[in-house]
Simulated scan of single mutants.
Amino acid sequence: MALLELTNTHKSFKITSGLLGLQSGELRAVDNINLSVEKGKTLGLVGESGCGKSTLAKCIMGLEKLTAGEIRFEDKTINSWDEKKLRRKIQMIFQDPYSSLNPRHKVGAIIREGLDIHHIGSPKDRILKVNETLKLVGLLPEHAQRYPHEFSGGQRQRIAIARALALNPNLIVCDEPVSALDVSVQAQILTLLKDIQTQFKLTYVFISHDLSVISHIADQVAVMYLGRIMEVGPAQILFEFPRHPYTQALLSAVLAPDPEAQSQQILLNGDLPSPLAPPRGCPFHPRCPYAFEKCAVIKPELKNVDSQIQTACWLD
């Protein structure tokens, strides 16, 4: 059973100009997305910067209201949830551990904040919960008395993970949680997230532009471009047999451990188009090496190309 379901999810922003603030355009950040995440699994959401990944994360969190469509969590629409109850069920780990933690608060207060707001347990119980959570992420109880600036980047992200875990959520949205860390530290944090997921049967939506990171943690992968899903399927199959030209280009840019095994990189023409003026037809066609006349006229919808993979491409 799916813990999270997105149906025809759409989020656009009005662009205003002039002294009167009249609408001059529309930015489609999330355009007709259909996805589901099974309980205890990880959905990896990948794509270039500016493709709408973080906006989609905010919609899942209930921080942005949808323009159209529906998001269901535990078989209830996001909008029908009481906001306070939703915050206990869905937590988020942010990209930058240096700016996501309040520098004026000690670590214990940061982790305990959610427990205080929701009045969970007695003051003594909350302190015990903070200490347990710190141990869970590989830190010590005495670290609760220190400030964030006294820790390294990797340790700060462990604190951010502890804060997310304190309320015992069912779903955690991870918005580029390792992109600001060194490669060696990235591996430690990914291992920690996987261990915690197994222990508590957590469900993740893991956002990243780095496919090598996604390949280590995701069960299902959705490739996003200009607010739309280009390809989605099981991680192992999608990485071994990418069908969409955009997925193929992204994977060709991933460095292989063996230089001799590195395949030829697919170079895309031009830059990512502006979401304020997306191309007609397939949004990827101006940069696609295989585009033909139909691609520039009609927008392909996401469809099954086999029993497990879906793509939005006229080549399939």
Rank of each mutant, 00 (worst) to 15 (best):
M1S: 04
E5K: 10
L6I: 03
I15V: 12
S17N: 11
G25K: 09
D31P: 12
N32E: 03
I33E: 08
E38D: 14
K39W: 08
G52A: 07
K53Y: 08
L63D: 01
L66E: 00
E70N: 08
E74P: 08
R87M: 03
I93Q: 05
F94A: 03
P97L: 05
L101E: 05
R112W: 01
L115M: 11
I117M: 01
H118N: 11
I120C: 08
G121P: 10
V130P: 08
V137M: 07
L139P: 09
A144V: 10
R146N: 09
Y147R: 10
E150I: 13
E150W: 11
Q155F: 11
R163D: 14
R163K: 06
L171N: 11
V173S: 02
C174M: 03
P177L: 11
V178F: 00
L181T: 04
V185P: 14
L190I: 15
I196H: 12
Q197Y: 11
T198K: 15
T198R: 13
Q199L: 14
K201W: 03
S208K: 02
I214H: 02
V221P: 02
I229T: 13
E231A: 12
A235N: 00
P245N: 05
P245F: 06
Q248P: 02
S252R: 07
E260N: 12
N269W: 13
N269E: 15
P273R: 09
L276K: 10
A277E: 15
P278C: 14
R280P: 08
F292M: 04
E293W: 00
V297K: 15
K303E: 13
N304W: 08
A312P: 07
A312W: 08
